[in-house]
Amino acid sequence: MKKSIIIALVVALLFAGVNSFANSIDDQINKNQQELDDIKKRLNEGVESLDRNEGQQTDIEREVSALEREIRDREAKIVVLESDIVDTKLAIEVKEVELIEAEKEVQFQNDRMEKRLRTMYKSGNFGYLEVMLGAADFTDLLTRVDKIQMLLDYDQETLLALIEAREFVVQRKEELENYRLKLEADKVEVQLEKVKLQASVNVLEEKKVLLQQDHKALSNQLNELNKDADKITSILKDLELRKKYVGGKMMWPLDLSHTSISSPFGERMHPILLTLKLHTGIDVRAPKGAAVYAAQSGQVIYSDWLGSYGMAVMIDHGGGIITLYGHNSALLVSPGTEVKKGDAIAKVGSTGRSTGNHLHFEVRVAGDYVDPYDYVTNPSN
């Protein structure tokens, strides 16, 4: 009697130890999972920050490009203005020469007319008397008087024309001077615009440098977070392996009328890619819509489209063991759902990279693909 009591106590203690060990592992898994979730959250935030940073850098590059185009436009305007200023200065120099020549002509004509007038003044009436006495007749006299008057009129008209020409040159020179001053002012204004634009470019370039520094710092932080995530993932993998799988033999994931294998586990020539690849599970022929069952109890960790697997379900059975059911036409469970062995979880289909209706069934241990026949028995064998 005492012996049986002692044995019972030992068994109880053993179970208590096992439960305590399991609880300890679960606690460690939960703790590490929370830490991993926190790291993933920070990673997502970091990636978003990087995206924003890169977007801001792109915006700055666009702004700088636009400003540099404006700067080139101002530089081209300055070149044109400088060319116009040179041409205007040359034109002014020409007008200055013309003005000197015009003033000489005016002075010469003025001197000649004054000389003629002085001569006539000194001659007085005698000069006119000579003209009158020297005339052959009255008609000749009138002709001689007209010629004298015409000569005087010509001198005066010539002088006035020269003065007018000189005034025109002076006016044109003033216009050119004013135009040159305007060109100089325009040049200064455009140069100021260029300076302001360059200052804006410099400010943006400084912002870009700061963003690049932030980008580098963020990238380094993300690298460290990824290292931490890898480390914790490795710890979780080890902890999952330390958890004892108590599920026992798995059940066939389809009705017993569907047991024909179209492709076993192992190396094979891929029917679509036509390359030698590891077939990571077994393919079981079944009609579209046939029920797919959970091979063992566990928690659904994925139920959605999964690349080449198409519509897929993944179930975690503990102990690092996960089963996958691929190419379904419909999914009947959602992530987080606790399922029991034999629960319907999907319907057979041909979604994803598939050549026909079938179930792709996988078993993974600690992330590694294993032959499903190590865990499930084909009822047709």
Rank of each mutant, 00 (worst) to 15 (best):
D186L: 07
D186F: 03
K187P: 03
V188D: 15
V188C: 08
E189I: 07
E189S: 11
V190K: 04
Q191L: 07
Q191K: 08
L192Q: 15
E193W: 04
E193M: 09
K194G: 00
K194Q: 02
V195C: 00
L197Y: 11
Q198C: 02
A199E: 14
A199W: 06
S200N: 14
S200Y: 11
S200W: 05
V201H: 03
N202S: 08
V203D: 09
V203I: 11
E205S: 15
E206N: 07
E206F: 02
K208V: 04
K208N: 12
K208L: 04
V209W: 08
V209Y: 10
L210V: 13
L210W: 06
L210R: 09
L210N: 12
L211D: 00
L211P: 00
L211M: 00
Q212D: 10
Q212S: 15
Q212E: 13
D214E: 13
H215E: 15
H215Q: 15
H215T: 09
H215N: 14
K216L: 08
K216Q: 11
K216A: 12
A217E: 09
A217W: 06
L218C: 03
L218D: 05
L218K: 03
S219I: 07
S219E: 09
S219D: 08
N220Y: 15
N220F: 13
Q221C: 03
Q221L: 12
L222W: 00
L222I: 06
L222A: 03
N223P: 03
N223E: 10
E224Q: 14
N226G: 03
N226W: 06
N226L: 05
K227H: 10
K227F: 11
D228T: 03
D228S: 10
D228H: 02
A229G: 04
A229T: 02
A229M: 01
A229S: 11
A229N: 02
A229W: 01
D230P: 05
D230I: 11
D230N: 13
D230K: 10
D230M: 13
D230Q: 12
D230R: 12
K231G: 07
K231T: 13
I232A: 02
I232D: 01
T233K: 10
T233N: 12
